[in-house]
Amino acid sequence: MKGGTGRDLGGYLAPLLVGVAVLGGWEWLVWARGIPPYVLPGPLRIGQTLISDWAPLSASLIYTLKLTVLALAVAAVAGLALALLFALSRGIERALFPYAVILQVTPIVAIAPLIIIWVNDVSISLLICAWIVAFFPILSNTTVGLNSADPNLQDLFRLYGASRWQVLWRLKLPGAMPYFLAGLRISGGLALIGAIVAEFVAGTGGAASGLAYRILESGFQLQIPRMFAALALISASGIAIFLLLSLLSHLLLRRWHESAQDGERR
């Protein structure tokens, strides 16, 4: 980013200060009240646990992240492909879109048990659950984007005798990119939530490997600091996914789209 380094620093500094203040207050509260770690561990204790239990925690982290990234990738490809199909045929859009909505409004906790029963492989059933949650924002956003091409530009393409394929590829798809990327950013967080929720539903009968399983297991064993450590890893993953997708969006759109302007103009 050009210019405004001072402003950027301020932009990072404010949330950082809030974070430090909250963690400090939390640590002080735990210490001053003498709250035992099996009720509420302080941030320092959670940090220690993160280091001492890193081996099982990191294995779970990698399992959950793999699941999330894979679900997001499949959702992105499937959402984009289906949206393109919709753009080619209004009939297909009308026939299929309601079912995409049904998939979206059905709570994942309610259908996860069924999916886990129907699909033999637990990891694959978790993947399907995470995919279902992540899929819709990409599909609906991209569909809106493909449908909002400038009518005058569409006329121009017609004037020059462009084929349907040329209109889709050279006009509608580039114009839909900002919408697709906005959907992707929403879906990144949702894929993580879907993966965690599904693993909770699978419970101890699950693959015994993800962060949700770590939380369940720590709860049963009353290892509350480890539970908090797993929670912290989930939050960190969510933040990292969001930041990475924002960066991707910025890199792809910065040359032309208003949402990704470099400093100066604002």
């Binding site: 400038d150 005058n152 006329d155 121009l156 580039p174 114009g175 990119m177 032309w256």
Partner: peptide, 15 residues
């Protein structure tokens, strides 16, 4: 054989 200029520039912003 026909060129058209609209009231707005009608350019593709990504190009």
């Amino acid at each position: 054989d026909i060129g058209f200029v609209f009231q707005e520039p009608t350019l593709m912003p990504w190009a």
